[in-house]
């Protein structure tokens, strides 16, 4: 893909610094939640605690220090992987998240994979054959897909495949194989039977978005002069459409896919609840019910970091694909 010049590194370094700034803001918000949302001491000590007890806990937690010092300690702890202790389970937050992270990541990746696998070809087909009945059906179907809320489509899938047909388990995550600290459900057939329905539910929205996006971009690109000129040079339809047109249409689609993957991870909450999927979203819901502030703020930081990293990757892909950005 050509040499990556000094300008590229500069560009990426810039993005990295921007990402760090964003993370500082996010951690500050997380810290503010921790600090100002209710009194953590009240949550930790029992109802029968005396004032002296409270004061002791306060000192233990370092709550008597100035706010700015507390913030830097908070950031320092995070950098060492210490997100504090969950109020609810009395275990370390980072361990709790580490157990649930594989479930959410696998669910998101599988659903992202499905939406790209089907979305891009469907989008191309709709752009190249705008009048065929199949592309009209795709478009109408996608409209339906985008209008049905996730909890409803999830319940419909459960009704059809679990209740009526009895083919797939309706909830939970099974068939796990342990790879060190990562429990995966992707290597056994049983594992797939658990993941397929929540992944499909989660992917419907992304799928429609990608299909429509690819279609619109492709239609735009096909009308450009360089595509006309490529045809006038007598290149075959295949080369014109799949090399010249597709490459150019995918550039903006990459951004959307990247950001969507972020949203899938961050907001798979509903799907995880419907399918009782033991992921981060479910944990987040439980922690809200309990006002488990350390878990909530850790989740916030995690989502922020995930978006920042995804954006960095998107920028990198952009620069690799588009020579105009590389030169700068």
């Amino acid at each position: 893909m050509g040499a990556i010049g000094l300008a590229m590194y500069k560009y990426l370094l810039q993005r990295l610094v921007q990402g760090i700034l964003v993370m500082l803001v996010v951690t500050f918000v997380a810290f503010a939640i921790f600090h100002f949302l209710g009194d953590p001491v009240n949550n930790m000590v029992g109802e029968s605690a005396t004032d002296a007890d409270r004061q002791m806990v306060r000192l233990q937690l370092g709550l008597d220090e100035p706010v700015i010092v507390q913030y830097f300690k908070f950031v320092g702890n995070i950098l060492q992987g210490d997100f504090g202790i969950s109020y609810r389970t009395r275990t370390s937050v980072i361990e709790q998240m580490a157990v649930r992270l594989p479930a959410t990541l696998e669910l998101s990746l599988v659903s992202g994979f499905f939406s790209i696998l089907f979305g891009i070809p469907m989008g191309i087909y709709c752009a190249l054959q705008p009048k065929s009945w199949l592309s009209r059906n795709f478009l109408v179907g996608s409209l339906v897909g985008i209008s049905i809320p996730t909890f409803l489509s999830g319940l419909l899938l459960i009704y059809l495949f679990s209740v009526t047909l009895g083919w797939l388990p309706s909830q939970g995550r099974g068939g796990l194989v342990s790879l060190g600290w990562w429990d995966t459900s992707l290597v056994t057939l049983k594992g797939w039977s658990y993941i397929i329905m929540p992944a499909l539910t989660l992917c419907i929205y992304q799928l429609t978005l990608i299909t429509r996006m690819v279609r619109a971009e492709m239609q735009e690109v096909i009308r450009t002069d360089y595509i006309k000129f490529a045809r006038a040079r007598g290149l075959s339809n295949y080369i014109v459409q799949y090399r010249h047109a597709l490459q150019n249409s995918l550039v903006p689609v990459v951004t959307i896919i990247g950001l969507q993957l972020g949203t899938v991870v961050a907001f798979s909450i509903i799907t995880e609840t419907v399918f009782n999927w033991p992921g981060l979203g479910q944990m987040f819901i439980q922690s809200i019910e309990f006002v488990d502030i350390p878990v909530m703020s850790a989740y916030l930081i995690f989502v922020g970091a995930f978006f920042v990293i995804l954006n960095l990757i998107v920028d990198l892909v952009y620069a690799l694909v588009d020579p105009r950005l590389r030169a700068a």
């Binding site: 002069d225 360089y226 006309k228 000129f229 490529a230 150019n248 694909v321 588009d322 020579p323 105009r324």
Partner: peptide, 11 residues
């Protein structure tokens, strides 16, 4: 064609 700025594939 007329416009050389848009006649070539930019990528």
């Amino acid at each position: 064609f007329q416009d050389p700025l848009t006649s070539l594939n930019p990528l």
